[in-house]
Nucleic acid binder design. Structure first.
Lengths: 232, 232
DNA sequence: CGTCCTTTTGAACATTGTCAAACACTGTGG
DNA sequence: CCACAGTGTTTGACAATGTTCAAAAGGACG
């Protein structure tokens, strides 16, 4: 692969501060692949031989234990995933599958670790990225432990609202089934929670969300920059 | 502060790979302080001006939202905490308080960031540390989402058992109240869960845990290296 | 138009949380 | 050394929350 092949890669902050020569080295052995929807990319427990980057489409990170499955996150372009396993040269802690047709760049972990040792700009970018990942994960834990499922749903909607330029009408970007799992609820429980939100000025019809009383919703959700991520 | 003042610091993998000169620079402006039990060290939302290192005693990391508090982790010697906030120069996501009389080293964040930029050995160590923190946090989330409270307790006991050299009789190192919060249960619920574990060959009397049927406990807990940390 | 999948609804059930009270443990001061 | 206060833990009754199972309703797509 060459530097110009995937211009989207340049958008990644992870690669912004490295020397062009090292960037070349990094992507020389990389390759891009387009996957159909619902294809397993990696499986937890496997060894992390590649750093993955979603160039288009979207990828679900999920985990399984004792026949239960839970949705951990959705990765959207342009972002890398499982950086920690790559750097640590350890097993993946999460599985990943495509949600839709997706283009994925695969960077051999060994090259990532090698360039990481040689290029201090890249090393710093890796640190920033890992610090962000860690802080997101801490926020996830707080969200789960400190809030009820109704409060988690309310905050999820507020985050979605922020990401859609504060529109009061917007579309859910994931299926309700997966949203339920992401919020640690059953689909039935989510369905009922959605009904309960009507008394807080939220209408959800199919995938279309309409917020009619933001104050009531905020009063319930009590969003906090120390728990909720308004970036991404 | 001088390099020889706190020999315990040398034990930290975080400082193992840096040049002695940079280590000197890093700890020059640092200071050690001994705190009584139950003293607040940092408060979430505050700005991260110091990297903290527990030299002796122990520290609880906890979080608060909407008048609820939850215990996030216990930091034992010799470990740093809130490295991510230091590196990111961002607000703390968790509060910290001493659990007992504790000696804490305080390293000015600005120095940590400066040496981080100059010393690539240190930078790599920071990356390793953050990657570990992130992976621990992911495991926490999986533990919370995939397991029931009884299963979390069972796995907590198995981890404690491993840490006490696989002894079948050992002491709980934290008060049940905090353990409950850490496991995301109420004290009452924990108390009942402990009783339920009797049918899985676990007796808990005060702080003394006795495992009489490890097979039964393992069958319930189904521990996994992809969720449980047997290190620390 | 069916078929498959998701979502919704209802009812029974399980789990967990809340509140109040009893009990146990710890350390203090008399 | 004991009485006692203060804290932490346990227990019981009950309420709230969340899950399971079964079935119906709605959508997507060949």
């Amino acid at each position: 692969m060459r530097a110009g092949d995937i211009p989207e890669l340049q958008k990644l902050k992870l690669f912004a501060d490295m020397t062009p020569a090292h960037f070349q080295d990094l992507i020389r052995a990389a390759y891009v692949q387009t996957f159909p929807p619902h294809v397993d990319l990696i499986s937890e427990g496997d060894h992390g031989d590649f750093l993955h980057i979603v160039v288009s489409g979207s990828v679900e990170l999920y985990s399984v234990w004792n026949h239960h499955e839970t949705s951990m996150a959705t990765v959207r372009p342009v972002s890398s995933f499982i950086l920690a396993a790559t750097i640590k040269n350890g097993p993946y802690l999460m599985s990943a599958r495509t949600l839709e047709k997706s283009r994925i760049v695969l960077l051999p972990s060994i090259d990532v670790r090698e360039i990481f040792d040689r290029d201090s700009g890249f090393a710093r970018a890796v640190v920033r990225e890992l610090a962000n990942c860690y802080r997101s994960a801490v926020k996830d834990t707080k969200n789960l432990k400190l809030r009820s499922s109704l409060e988690r749903l309310a905050n999820y909607l507020i985050r979605s609202h922020m990401r859609s330029n504060e529109a009061l009408v917007f579309e859910l970007t994931i299926k309700k089934r997966r949203l339920a799992s992401f919020l640690d609820m059953t689909p039935e429980n989510l369905s009922r929670a959605i009904k309960s939100l009507r008394s807080y000025g939220v209408q959800i019809d199919g995938t279309r969300v309409t917020i009619t009383d933001m104050n009531a919703l905020l009063k319930l959700a009590k969003p906090s920059p120390l728990i909720d991520d308004y970036s991404t």
